[in-house]
Design a protein around this nucleic acid. Structure first.
Length: 296
RNA sequence: GGCUCAUUAGCUCAGUUGGUAGAGCAGGGGAUUGAAAAUCCCUGUGUCCCUGGUUCGAUUCCGGGAUGAGCCA
């Protein structure tokens, strides 16, 4: 019996798309996007989204559903993805959730904290504060939360302070432990792994191909109001290229480096998810499929 | 051929008024519950180009050599 939902994770350029497709064909499954940037329209090449042909091979969900101007977050993603996954399961199919965005996937697998969503007004205001100011204010409102945060991490501190300001309470009191063993035990997922040097080569090659096959035009076409999507690796680098601050070679080099560093963070993230089973990404696809089917 | 300047961490460079050296980037390790492809933390011993000399002691001063750049022929 094939499980009704499978999470397929791993660092960028590890071959998730190809394996997902092969699994979907073998099992008659459907693919659900678990990647923060493939949700968007407009950055298909830079985000390495599955091609039109690939998407035609089996049902794909949540790819290219957002405009570049829209902003996204993990909770909204989970609100979109959960019903889709449940629908697939209700039709007796397997939902194969593929992606590399650790936080987004975690909201699916472990649940969502009962905290308020981001508040644009507060965020804009906090942009003008120094990290120290944010930290000190958080210390006043919620010393416990301040103590567990890194005093230099603007993003994490801003979020914690935002929760305090919006709720009038304490962010630390809304924190919860999501590592419920009973829940985690039921999860099924795999993480693709590669030796570091080989993954680095794959990243370098893929970066080169992206730049040769339209990534530059994609970035040129991004609307100025684009929000979340601007954080994608490659956007800043390509903009620096066409504004003349970098040569194309430097641009390619910078994107390769950022991507490699991102892959490292992803490896950290997925390594902590001890429920994920590791699968050697360098195995031939057919063997990967056989391996996963056997585990299941 | 002559003169000048350079040669220090994988890369770009700083520095030591002579007591064997440090930044940025890269690399390595880690954090992470509504911006996450984001954000942040930890991590730097290297024939200080080689070789003689001066010195208690030279990467630092002096001589010679090598390599590179520039200028003059």
């Amino acid at each position: 019996m094939i499980s009704s939902r499978l999470f397929l994770c791993g660092p960028t350029a590890s071959g998730k798309t190809a394996l997902a497709l092969a699994l979907a064909e073998a099992w008659g499954g459907e693919i659900v996007n678990g990647d923060a940037f493939q949700l968007y329209r407009g950055l298909e090449i830079l985000s390495a989204a599955p091609s039109k042909d690939e998407q035609a091979a089996c049902p794909h969900h949540l790819f290219g559903i957002m405009d570049a101007e829209e902003s996204m977050d993990a909770a909204r993603y989970a609100a979109l993805a959960n019903p889709v996954i449940e629908d697939i399961e209700s039709r007796g199919k397997t939902a194969i959730v593929v992606g590399g965005s650790g936080l987004y996937l975690k909201f699916l697998t472990h649940g969502i904290a009962e905290a308020p969503p981001g508040n644009e007004e507060i965020r804009v205001e906090l942009e003008n504060w120094s990290v120290d100011q944010i930290f000190r204010r958080l210390q006043e409102l919620d010393p416990n939360e301040a103590a567990r945060q890194n005093s230099q991490n603007r993003r994490h501190l801003s979020r914690a302070l935002e929760i305090c300001l919006v709720t009038g309470g304490k962010a630390s009191e809304l924190r919860q432990n999501f590592e419920d063993p009973a829940l985690v035990e039921k999860l099924k997922g795999i993480a693709l792994t590669w030796p570091r040097e080989i993954l680095a080569e794959r990243i370098a090659l893929r970066t080169q191909i992206m730049l040769e096959s339209g990534a530059i035009d994609e970035v040129k076409a991004l609307p100025l109001e684009a929000g979340t999507i601007r954080q994608a690796i490659g956007v800043r680098e390509i903009e620096a290229y066409f504004s003349g601050q970098m040569t194309l070679a430097e641009c390619e080099e910078r994107i390769t480096i950022s991507t490699r560093q991102y892959a490292k963070r992803q490896r950290n993230w997925f390594r902590r998810e001890s429920w994920l089973r590791l699968l050697d990404g360098s195995l031939p696809l057919a063997e990967q499929v056989a391996e996963v089917t056997r585990w299941d």
